Amino acid sequence: MSTPAARSRPSEDGLIRSSSSPPSGSETAAERLTDDLLVEILSRVPAKSLCRFKCVSKHWLGLTNDRNYRRKLPQTLTGFYQGNQLVDSGVPFTNVSGSRHLTHPAFLPNRRQVKIMDCCNGLLLCSSYVAGDHGDVFRYIVCNPATEEWAEFPYCGYSGLVANARLCFDPAVSPHFHVFLLPVADICITGVHVYSSETGSWVHKEKRWSGTIDVANDRSTVYLNGYLHFCAIVDGSDGRLAAVDKEGGARTNFRVPDGLDVGFIQLSQGCLHYAGFDTDDDNVVRLLVYVLKDYDRKEWILKHSVETSHLLGGRHIEYLDEDFDWIAIHPECDLIFFAVAQEDITFMCYDMDSGQVKVMCNLEDSNQAYFPYVPLYEELQSLHK
């Protein structure tokens, strides 16, 4: 096994920065074998424990920061990109410890006002204006901050309103990604536009749901089993999930657990999760989390229940839709991230296993979208300059 030629230090947002001190060329075969053994040990550590390591040797830290070795480690949530706003300089990033900073995608040339629109399995979907001979031209960009690879493609040409623009990517299934646009007219979805990195083109399919359907106010979506899932209003009734496949053809919708308000969906530990609030006969508001372990049967199982007053330090919030914003459910463990408008707007984390609530940091604006980011250190043929 050859010694890595250079050390790389991925930052928390996944951007690779080279170290000024390369490894010694005198590393022995025994030392390399020990390194491989350490990687094997770390790869078996649960992600929840791995991301909480505080006391490790400098050698271990250097090893886990090396790009060649990191590819062998389990990838885990590092933080959250702030999206849905045009920025001329850096993009806000909040890591899982609560510290915040700006990231600068300098590897994207000639870009002005980049806006992050979605994030999926290590890839970012961005919109941007590219300097052209006749002025700025709108483009979509899909990039991997961890490898600094990117690909751009034109807008599909649709001139009406779009309810959602979503990136769908599953590296365990395919190296290619898809981008979904859901056009709307008179509040209803009229069809779907899908871009495929494999074909390099857009396809458009007309509406195929049996009734009228619209995207609900919640911004969360999940890509699972080749389908984009989103919270929907079907024939005027909420409490549904809708799904469309990557060809834009097959459409379906199914019920979420009854009685839940302010629904939110996420993919965690390989299963679709649905979280929401329920008020009992004594006007006690509880947060409920359901999991769809058997996707084919569409049977929801209650996973967790907690009074919202526990999450909010004993406070009772009457209008959750005004004071509470979902951010994410951790993809590998039972952590819920959310924002609460109190005297300040607070980014918080709740551990369903221990019942502990942690204040992470203060935010300037809770109405912004926060996209969970898990770095991907694999080079992809679908991303090229």
Rank of each mutant, 00 (worst) to 15 (best):
Y81Q: 10
D214L: 06
D258G: 05
D344M: 07
R297G: 04
N144E: 01
L37P: 01
N367E: 08
H101T: 05
D36N: 14
C349Y: 05
G122W: 03
V262H: 14
F169G: 01
G259E: 05
D245W: 03
E343D: 10
M360Y: 02
Y274K: 04
N283S: 14
V162P: 01
R71V: 03
P23I: 13
W326I: 03
L73T: 07
L292A: 04
C188S: 13
S49F: 11
G313S: 07
D133Q: 11
V162M: 08
M348S: 08
E299W: 00
R17N: 13
H316W: 08
H178N: 07
C188W: 11
A275D: 00
D351L: 06
L33G: 02
Y227V: 04
A165P: 01
L267Y: 04
F371W: 11
F177C: 04
P46M: 10
D118E: 02
P175W: 07
K385C: 11
S366L: 13
L228C: 12
Q75H: 10
L63Y: 06
V114F: 10
P46R: 14
G259Q: 02
Y223E: 02
N283R: 14
G239M: 05
S19E: 11
A29P: 00
V39C: 12
S366T: 03
S99C: 11
V222D: 00
S89N: 08
L288M: 14
Q113Y: 09
Q266D: 08
G236A: 08
N95A: 03
H134E: 11
D344H: 13
L73S: 03
Y129G: 09
A369L: 13
S97T: 07
T78W: 09
V357I: 12
D282R: 13
V194P: 03
G83T: 03
S57I: 12
A216R: 12
M348Y: 01
T78R: 15
L38M: 14
L320G: 05
M360F: 00
G14D: 06
L311A: 06
A165L: 10
A151D: 00
N253G: 00
I345S: 08
G122S: 03
V256S: 10
R112F: 09
A30G: 02
V340S: 14
V56D: 02
V374F: 01
H330Q: 04
L267A: 09
Y377R: 06
E31M: 12
I16Q: 14
K72L: 15
T78M: 12
E148R: 15
A369Q: 10
F337R: 09
V359S: 13
D66C: 15
C188R: 15
C120P: 02
S2G: 07
V291L: 04
V96M: 09
S24P: 01
Q113P: 00
A242G: 12
C168L: 06
I187E: 14
V91E: 06
K205P: 01
H204M: 09
H104S: 08
D278F: 09
D282I: 04
A243H: 02
D325E: 13
P109L: 04
C231K: 14
S174D: 08
P257S: 07
L61T: 12
N362I: 05
D281F: 07
